[in-house]
Amino acid sequence: MIQYALKCADGHDFDSWFQSAAAYDKLAAAGMVQCSICGSGKVEKAMMTPRVRPERQIADAPEPKTPDRPLSKPSNAAEQALSELRRKVEEGSDYVGVNFASEARAMHQGDAPERPIYGEAKLEEARALVEEGIPIAPLPFLPNRKVN
């Protein structure tokens, strides 16, 4: 795993973990790295300070300190607003996962009862929904997923 300091075109700084440097490059090339604050896809690596300890101190040195703020707690107004939006969406909507496009289409056509939903859709699926006049909006965050 590797942690990168990232910066979007709007100047938001944030950190993210990747499986490897190659994994970051692949995700960035596919446009899948987005700003965690504004959702912009124009993200690049920011200057970072490496965490290097002199070899003679490795054995008896404590683990490096974590940042002053845990990543799970918002530290500024934008992060707090995003956190509140996420909470409201998750509490007031049904998560339909990768079935988002078919669920939205079924509700629009009257084949399913209307209700607030959120989920995941491929870019092509989202474009098709918009072209069909189905009202959708991208969310500036990804749904929580359990991994391992």
Rank of each mutant, 00 (worst) to 15 (best):
M1E: 07
Q3G: 06
Y4M: 00
Y4W: 10
L6Q: 01
K7Y: 05
A9E: 14
A9R: 08
A9G: 02
F14G: 00
D15F: 09
S16M: 15
K26T: 03
L27V: 00
A29C: 06
C35I: 03
C38F: 04
G39V: 10
S40T: 09
K42G: 04
K42C: 09
K45S: 08
K45Q: 13
M47S: 10
M48Q: 09
M48D: 03
V52Q: 07
V52W: 04
Q57G: 05
I58Y: 09
I58M: 09
A59I: 01
A61R: 10
T66F: 01
D68V: 08
R69K: 11
R69M: 12
S72A: 07
S72G: 00
K73L: 14
P74K: 12
S75P: 00
N76P: 04
N76D: 15
A78M: 11
L82M: 11
L82D: 01
E84L: 09
E84A: 14
E84G: 07
R86T: 09
R87W: 03
R87A: 12
R87K: 13
R87M: 06
K88G: 13
V96P: 03
N99T: 00
N99D: 11
F100W: 08
S102C: 08
E103V: 15
E103T: 14
A112P: 05
A112G: 03
P116W: 12
I117S: 07
I117A: 09
I117R: 08
I117Q: 02
G119D: 10
E125V: 14
E125R: 08
A126C: 09
A126H: 04
R127W: 06
V130E: 11
E132V: 03
E132I: 01
I136Q: 10
F141E: 07
L142T: 06
P143V: 02
K146M: 10
K146T: 07
K146P: 00
K146S: 07
N148W: 06
